[in-house]
Design a protein around this nucleic acid. Structure first.
Lengths: 239, 239
DNA sequence: CCATGTGAACCGGTTCACAGCT
DNA sequence: AGCTGTGAACCGGTTCACATGG
């Protein structure tokens, strides 16, 4: 089990299974099965078992799964047991909604810094934090690092035409995970000239990006309303 | 060209290509190529050509594509030339952010109704609209229909535990497209008992659902930060 | 007998090589 | 010569059938 070649769709589904298990647990259901989970996740039971098999054996043959055990395992696999410090770039309506969304501070996720360029927003309080100027981000990350902490994730909630620039600031500050809400394909910086033309710039090495784009979702939806035969009801997280 | 068997990933990419073409057009670039587009979309040039080939021939061999022509074709393919009336269910911070997001009213998308159950929100004005009680949704849709209009899309921005119920209200009002922002897998109603046990309920026939789930994106990101080898930088719209 | 776990088959999407047009 | 359009090869993810263990 070298943890290689795992479909990205599998990771999306694991997140869904975990959410379902948490709901079951809070409803005091403590046993489940691949069939049961698959109904709730709108996928096939084969798929559930195959997805889990990438990571180990969590059930009992003939019996199914224990909700608590499987939940714990999925949290461990997904990395939701360790702390994650998150900064948000862009504190317009969207950034505010994210910062305040119930569940965003679940697990060990915590928002540790909020940044914007708008002087009218800087200094305003949001939850327990104060909005800071964008150009203080690098120093902010450094300061946390000096305290033995880090900033693992940055959420980009800036306007589309500022997203690329903000992403660059974020990765230059050393943040390795980017959740991009802007309707833009982020371009990792590549080297120009020199013997290593086109090579990925140092600050982008190991950076991972996830996109959350509701405008794109809205447009896909338009297409599928016009062509409903092309899409059977499914779970699939688009974004 | 029967428009069958088109990968859902292709539709996501078409949306991206369209966005890129619009940006090129506003930068007064009027010629492009599969290579050019593929760089901007972070996919292969093969992929661009194959995606377009599902729908026709839009380029000139040896020359590439005309930005304006390809843009127009993609808009037509995706259904972004006809009007789309949209209602939003749930006018908390997220619903408000969506209603006000720049670009959400582009094309022919227009928000025609905003609904909530909270008496404190009902009656409040948001942009040119007034928030209405959720139980007036069905009458609202009927009234529009009587005027020869329709409501083609509903955005679910309600709390997770209300999402299933709100979805049911939406589809019972006859709305066929659902953009679900709640971290929940919507369950289409199926018939119980009778000879057609398990069959899809009438109101869910032809309904298409797209999910936009940033909490899921955040959790996937956690996994990929811990396992960066499993993900090379890519465009892919997660949600 | 039941439900998991898994090697193999299948299928669909991506990649490729090249034919075709400008 | 250059870049599109496309049939075929390839690869990876999903589906399947069944062996395994409770």
């Amino acid at each position: 089990m070298t943890l290689l070649n795992i479909p990205t769709a599998t990771i999306s589904r694991l997140v869904t299974y975990l959410r379902i298990l948490e709901k079951l647990e809070s409803a005091v259901v403590n046993r489940t099965s691949s069939k049961h989970l698959s109904d709730l996740a709108q996928v096939s039971a084969f798929q559930v078992r195959k997805d889990l098999a990438y990571f180990g054996r969590f059930g009992t043959r003939g019996m199914g799964y224990t909700v608590g055990v499987l939940k714990r395992e999925l949290r461990r696999i997904l990395g939701l047991t360790r702390p994650w410090n998150v900064v948000i770039l862009g504190m317009g309506r969207l950034g505010q909604a994210i910062a305040n969304y119930p569940g965003a501070s679940e697990y060990e996720f915590s928002f540790v810094g909020l940044f914007d360029v708008d002087p009218h927003k800087i200094g305003n309080g949001v939850r327990h934090l104060t909005i800071e100027p964008m150009d203080s981000l690098e120093g902010f990350v450094k300061r946390l690092k000096a305290q033995g902490e880090g900033v693992e994730m940055g959420f980009l909630a800036v306007p589309p035409d500022k997203a690329q620039e903000a992403a660059q600031i974020l990765v230059e500050a050393g943040v390795k995970g980017v959740l991009n809400f802007a309707p833009v394909v982020l371009q990792p910086r590549t080297l120009e000239g020199g013997g290593r033309e086109g090579e990925l710039a140092e600050e982008w090495k190991g950076v991972v990006v996830e996109n959350v784009d509701f405008l794109a979702g809205m447009k896909r939806l338009a297409f599928y309303i016009l062509n409903p035969n092309l899409k059977e009801l499914e779970m699939e997280v688009s974004v």
